[in-house]
Design a protein around this nucleic acid. Sequence first.
DNA 1: AGTGCTCTAGGGGAAAACCCCGAGCCGACG
DNA 2: CGTCGGCTCGGGGTTTTCCCCTAGAGCACT
Lengths: 216, 216
Amino acid sequence: MSQPRVFLVDDHELIRSGIRSELAGAVDIVGEADEVEAAVEMILERNPDVVLLDVHMPAGGGVAVLRALNGRCPEVRVLALSVSDAAEDVIAVIRAGARGYVTKNISGPDLLDAIYRVAAGDAVFSPRLAGFVLDAFSLEGAQLEAADVDPDLDLLTPRERQVLRLIARGYSYRDVATELVISPKTVESHVSSVLRKLQLSNRHQLSNWASERHLL
Amino acid sequence: MSQPRVFLVDDHELIRSGIRSELAGAVDIVGEADEVEAAVEMILERNPDVVLLDVHMPAGGGVAVLRALNGRCPEVRVLALSVSDAAEDVIAVIRAGARGYVTKNISGPDLLDAIYRVAAGDAVFSPRLAGFVLDAFSLEGAQLEAADVDPDLDLLTPRERQVLRLIARGYSYRDVATELVISPKTVESHVSSVLRKLQLSNRHQLSNWASERHLL
DNA sequence: AGTGCTCTAGGGGAAAACCCCGAGCCGACG
DNA sequence: CGTCGGCTCGGGGTTTTCCCCTAGAGCACT
């Protein structure tokens, strides 16, 4: 690739001007916009390689642009640019489809490097941010691990766990009994133990308890 | 930082040798291991800046090493190295705490670059992989968006949605009635409508339906 | 030999959930 | 103005859940 074709979105003229001068000659700036609607239209029209997108803007901010772009131009990579390094902002914009996130205190050469890397399909984050993103990413998984050593779950006997699983899926006592080839009364007995041990009062709470721990 | 201190984990001597020669002089290789247990011990002992970790190994592979390391040395960054670019492998190792993932067909200079970037706290992925990772990351959020326009959910009246939410949380009819200041019979009536419209047969399925759509 | 836990199972009963019926009130829409 | 849909209730019924109790068989540990 010769020079990446870059589109600038930021509601502050001063910032855009600063970026232009920092990147002058090293990239091909194919357009600019200072608000959400115009940005979306022009991006769809000019199809740049990389969009430099400010996160905080009136009318929904960068996330609004990403939503509007949706999947309509997957070959356009978006590099989010922000003064904030708050975890929520980062997560939100990544969820919306950005391929990178850098803060505005980045140096000119580093920004240039980031643009080239995003253009190449790489994921780019400021060092401090990489931590946030990957930590958040591994969170859901972490809950699962925790469940394995869940002290409450250890209280249950194998049979009780087996019954719990079926009950949580919405099986009636009779269904569970048929499935496990035992009497409905026995199922009842197991459920009773489970509820007592987990300090729950009915099977609906049980369902939620199980689904929170991804036991289904 | 002068030269990053790098630790090599791979069960193939040949690979380690190749990496050593590629990186010779550019990084400080402070140790090697060819299996999980030894790797964990030596990493904890030598505290390198970066661990180059093979994903596929006997006795649990790279994921096992990451789990064992757990949070015991957060300042050690792990760069996963693998022949595979299968999404599951990538996701698993990221969830376990790796800060980067590159495939073994990477060039020497690129690997060197990746190591420096990981050492600096950056997140590094092969271009093709960045897509996988970020896509997977935005998945859970995407489900939420989809729910807003869920055709089934549109069938329900506002009151029905309100009742649905409470029921799904495990409230009894009486509780819901108290909460909404209506008769239990009315709640029953709404639940009946909801079940009919969503083609479900009982409140347990309803709970699951709601929790799948993150409506709690 | 006794103790304790698990799995099994039943009786009996209160409460909740679910279903089918009808019915009144109100606002929107043609 | 009539009709339709949403919201509000009730009666009366079956099924399911949940709790109380008892109790035997098997197994492990002391």
